[in-house]
Design a binder for these strands. Sequence first.
DNA 1: CATGAATGAGATTTCATTCAT
DNA 2: CATGAATGAAATCTCATTCAT
Lengths: 224, 224, 224, 224
Amino acid sequence: MAVEVAGTAARKATRNPEASRARILDAARQEFVSYGLSGARVDRIANLSGVNKNLIYHYFGSKDALYLAVLEGIYAGLRERQRDEDLRELPPVEGIRRLVESTFDHFVATPELIRLMSVENIHFGEYLKRSRSIKPLYSGLLDTIEILLKRGQSTGIFRPDVDAVDLYLSISGLAYFFLSNQHTLSWLLDRDLAARRRVNKRRQHVVEVVLGYLLGSSLAGAKG
Amino acid sequence: MAVEVAGTAARKATRNPEASRARILDAARQEFVSYGLSGARVDRIANLSGVNKNLIYHYFGSKDALYLAVLEGIYAGLRERQRDEDLRELPPVEGIRRLVESTFDHFVATPELIRLMSVENIHFGEYLKRSRSIKPLYSGLLDTIEILLKRGQSTGIFRPDVDAVDLYLSISGLAYFFLSNQHTLSWLLDRDLAARRRVNKRRQHVVEVVLGYLLGSSLAGAKG
Amino acid sequence: MAVEVAGTAARKATRNPEASRARILDAARQEFVSYGLSGARVDRIANLSGVNKNLIYHYFGSKDALYLAVLEGIYAGLRERQRDEDLRELPPVEGIRRLVESTFDHFVATPELIRLMSVENIHFGEYLKRSRSIKPLYSGLLDTIEILLKRGQSTGIFRPDVDAVDLYLSISGLAYFFLSNQHTLSWLLDRDLAARRRVNKRRQHVVEVVLGYLLGSSLAGAKG
Amino acid sequence: MAVEVAGTAARKATRNPEASRARILDAARQEFVSYGLSGARVDRIANLSGVNKNLIYHYFGSKDALYLAVLEGIYAGLRERQRDEDLRELPPVEGIRRLVESTFDHFVATPELIRLMSVENIHFGEYLKRSRSIKPLYSGLLDTIEILLKRGQSTGIFRPDVDAVDLYLSISGLAYFFLSNQHTLSWLLDRDLAARRRVNKRRQHVVEVVLGYLLGSSLAGAKG
DNA sequence: CATGAATGAGATTTCATTCAT
DNA sequence: CATGAATGAAATCTCATTCAT
């Protein structure tokens, strides 16, 4: 009888275990994203998902385990979209540009990701480390970067001595900080960092910084 | 003649309000940094600081107000050390380099700052916005960057069309992400990002990225 | 097959929400009546009602809200028993006599009412004013008095110029003070005002005062 | 140096034990009157009186003892003003009228008295009973009433069989209820009972009720 | 006489979790 | 599979009172 209605309001029982499970996960993601791990409330998750609180424990065992399930789902989405393997064949500059842009875009499109990454680091990454599913997602990422770097360096367009890890951290960090700390920064700098124009501008800037660094002569490293 | 003993164990009452207040703030900083706002426990702060729990409420009024006091203290420290005004007189490249380095160094030296910034953004910056003391600290920062940029651009060493806000976000972000997300990144990338060598290398990299971007021709922005 | 045992000792959980709610309300009434609002203790209410303390918050939200619920229950009982509408048809003297007696009797039968009225006035009636349910109970009362007064005055038995509000206040006040201040008055006047004989005597006295006033010539108002 | 300033704001230390003691009592009266015994806060009394909290304990020993001191002060004032002995010589009607009026007037002039009487009865009169000073104040009251009654009855103007205790309770109760329950009654009856006109009207009404009863034929007691 | 600092016990309220059906 | 009722432990906060000077 129950009609599935999209939205966030509470709904009636479905007698459909898959749907219940999914709705719990959905609500939990919202809750953990909004309030962090300690700040999240199981009661609110139950209300939001429209299921009985006990079902949450039935399916997930504990608040912590539920958080971990949410975390895994979010990270899976991140790496799925980055799909870096496709980039390996591209011309190096184009490949890097695409990697920078897709990283930036995914961060922008999934603010939940940013917040959960912050939350997880507040908790010293201990839940991430418990996960079996997340780490494998990262296996190919550095390889992709390394391949693009090597190809770019072999033709002399990219500066030598660029570390793939550092480059990855820079690509992510240039987008991440801007987004993760948007609330404090907007206030402190008197700019609305969430404004569409600002975001677009930032995207271009990040690309320029990464490519400017890679393409620039290494003189920059010399004493100013 | 109670001897002041350094460390974290509880101590006896001091009958010295300044000292009590300071010890509470100290313990609170540790607690909020370790567990976030929701995860922090007033009991632990009382134990850690060696004062009666009530004294915390006597001096600070509430857990939230105590958090705000900690936040203000931390931010004051950040901007105090950045002391950007001194940099305005330097040659532009040198000025930027110093700004990058001091930002990086302060972040590294004050891991508490990074964590509290994360915590605060998880809470949408609402406590920061309540503070009267923090925002003024940021008033001169963008001016400094703008001055250095202008001077560098007027002699043609810096690329044109660089936005001071974007530059500041990049300088900070390149250091911040690496530090704030150290726990998850170390695990996912199979590198110990906290290792001294890694940190030093990162410092140099960040300088190179920023200067590489500023000094590089703007061709980088062109299609790959 | 848990057997319901009457009394005030704690009982096991009933898994019957109506019963739990009722037991909480019951215990709360006793507690607020005995100690006032500030003096009441949620812990005692929990013990007395035999439920977990949290259940009180689950059902009522806060100590204050629980107090309001108790207050509403008590007032509802008062006006229900007064059932003044029935009196409108009676001969005026008989109607007033019955009103006086039923008011007196209900006050005597429900000492909790008197105490809660005192408690509420100590708190400036602020909870009463928050209630949506109480005020409507009083809508017909003054009408009833007015009707009886008019009819008695038209035949000349009741003195003219009697204000219904004043009459109601006198009817209530003559009974109320005797009961509400019983403890101090018994001590100060060296009489046991709670004694059955005294109460019966007082009941008769109150009727006589009210009717004596209404039936007497208005000469009494003249300078002695 | 310290200048004595009238008012309720906190003042500096006076090094004047009598003044300090008086100021504490003053503030305590306000506090107990406003919030009752359980609701009163020692901290507020200290602030209000402008003395160190410890001094309160120095002079009065405990919150309870301070409350008792306030209570005694208030009751002393009541009986002092009633000065019923003066009334014994008056013509009976005049004597009763004066007693009614002075009781009413003192209640109106000293709202604190009404509230403390309520507070004390909420606490079952247990503090009053501990007082040595209060009870003696009431010794002559019933005698006065009895004398006036006897004289009025001997000349036939007053009805026979009037109990002095009942009469006293009626005189007080007719004024007390109107004042003590002003907050709830004003709300429930949709009348501002605190309005000057209302109070004046009530005063006259109370006199009329008492004298109407005393002067009326005892037929009123007969079945209506 | 007087004070500012500090305390301990206990108050209200919260919250993850389990019970009984 | 699913639920509404209930719980225990612990959280934040309050308040009368005492300490040390």
